[in-house]
Design a binder for these strands. Sequence first.
DNA 1: GTGGGCATGTAAGGTGTTACATGATTCT
DNA 2: AGAATCATGTAACACCTTACATGCCCAC
Lengths: 182, 182
Amino acid sequence: MNKGSKTQYAVLGALSIQPMSGYEMKKMMNESTNYFWSESNGQIYPTLAKLAKEKYITVENQLVGSKPKKVYSLSATGVARLKKWLLEDPEYYPARNELVLKLFYGQNVSPKISIGHINKHSERCKQALIVYQDIIDSLEVLVRKKQRPVYFLIAALAGIKAVEAEIEWCNESIKLISKYTK
Amino acid sequence: MNKGSKTQYAVLGALSIQPMSGYEMKKMMNESTNYFWSESNGQIYPTLAKLAKEKYITVENQLVGSKPKKVYSLSATGVARLKKWLLEDPEYYPARNELVLKLFYGQNVSPKISIGHINKHSERCKQALIVYQDIIDSLEVLVRKKQRPVYFLIAALAGIKAVEAEIEWCNESIKLISKYTK
DNA sequence: GTGGGCATGTAAGGTGTTACATGATTCT
DNA sequence: AGAATCATGTAACACCTTACATGCCCAC
């Protein structure tokens, strides 16, 4: 397994929370890490197979009725691999942003178009804000009882801070475009 | 040329500023759009060739001494294609964020590790802030004279707002980890 | 009985980066 | 002379998503 691929670490990390199947992992990612990391089935299943082959995780074949289910768990070497990666400096990649790319070349179209894109984005951010706030509210209660979810809390906080900043940016940008075009 | 690929629009957009060669385009991207969009040579050159073949751009072969240089310009259909894309709603993709992924699984390592990652990130953001501020200062002067760079200004503003929010988040996260672990 | 959720997986194809190959020109 | 920059391009490989294939179980 190539050390550079991050998919494996997303998988190992998920298993560090609790043993689970590929299907459950996909669901869990959709519900929790989705806003900063997600993997498709086409990545999850082959990665689980490779990690199992290389003994970083173990498989337990369960039967739910006559339906097979493969529940994966971290092995000692798997935990070690995950920890080693957690210790390394994370890479900093400025993410691609299609909205900003379109705005950058906005002089080719009417200012109304750019303003429309920004308004739509602002609305989406406001929706996301509500979702994040719900997550944070429920996590904050738990954080005061046991330490674990403090890391989940700061992940959600990253989301909320980002969208708040984007909403501010949307407002200022619209003002600037209105003022300096026509 | 597949309509879904965004590389072509980054290329058409670049040519909407002025005609240029592949080499100049790469340089221009490194210097301006790099923080929200960049393309490698392995994308730029084949894309220029395809767009030229399909008449969205035209080529002029120049000679600098005995060294060949291909300067590309937008054709009328190229301008139309760019504009059509600019009118479409941009996609909203929550970008992958390796730092947040590592923090999310931070309970597997010492809190000091996570705090270290955050501190390092905060420093990088503060450096970026200085760079963005320089860009914005120089653009603001120009914006008051002619409208064009208002779109460049809001792109830079997106960067500055984002890193400012990240710095705040770093500070709060470190406080939370310090408070709720040990 | 059928639609939706559970469950595993593969195939094809697009996207993208890295590293290399090549060679001229310009600066020190 | 040698290094950096200008300039174009390709090959190999990694990454990732979409769509499909398969089939069981359960609720209505």
